[in-house]
Amino acid sequence: MSNEIIFSEVSKFYGEVLGVNRVSLNVPPGITSLVGPNGSGKTTLMNLMCGLIHADQGTISVRGMSPRDPEKLMRSMGYCTQFDAAPRGYSGYQFVSAALLLHGYSAAEADERTWKAIDRVNLREAAHRKVAGYSKGMRQRIRLAQSIAHEPEVLILDEPLNGLDPLVRAETIALFREFAALGRHVILSSHVLQEVDVISDQVILIANGSIIAEGQIHNVREEMSEHPSQFLIRCPDAARVASLLFAEDHITEVRLHADRMGLLVLTRSRERFSHLLNEIVLGGQAIESIVQADANVDSLYEYLIGGGR
């Protein structure tokens, strides 16, 4: 049985509105981030994986299971949705324990697992309060508790870090890493790209319902050979270095910093840029530091969505 999540030519339409279009993906275990703007199809992909919606075309396999078989699938899957509501009148404790009872756990075991999950998200104090009275961050945490309470092999989280304070955010990220370290799938979406950049093993970039890039973040970057890399250079004679750089055709843009001791350089070839810098240094120009300015998903994403500008 495959331990990957596989999308094969999956399309989903909401009436005449495109959800996702001919998506093919192989998601290995580890932390995978779905990145894209609002309406790009991130939640649609997640809902398709969980069987909350059904594909119009194509097939989906989650570790060998079909999303159309919730009885089997949801034993191994936890989904922390963006849907904010809990069944009417439920307390945080009831919200988690009711889901565990539906798994078939005995009342005692469900109680034990409920408290364990609630403790993991630090909500013990508020466990018997109604979910409807929770703050946004607390609702986020109780949903997370519910999704991890049965120790799923696949944990799917739609914008899981929204509304969390920095401390809880750090604890939550640690929890994701803990899950991933056990060989499980952790798939999350976020529009806070810096967070995704830091915690992900893989990234899937999605726009307008189509996958535009997937893989490890650095590999994705390598694949985008046309993607201009940005570098910040500090040097005493920035104007002279700028003129030397600009003579090369792979350099697409050079901006001089206001203090005339810094440069922002855009190049289409990291390799040739590296050789050029060596020659400049050997030619007697002092270079104090070189920093890559765009080594996060943000820049890559902007580049890809922006059509390779």
Binding site: C50, G51, L52, P70, E71, K72, L73, M74, R75, Y79, T81, F83, D84, A85, A86, P87, R88, A98, A99, L102, H103, G104
Partner: peptide
């Protein structure tokens, strides 16, 4: 109430 997903995300056959 936007709570149907609570039930659909449980390991329960829809018929059950």
């Amino acid at each position: 109430d936007k709570t149907l997903h609570f039930w659909f995300l449980a390991p329960v056959r829809r018929e059950v």
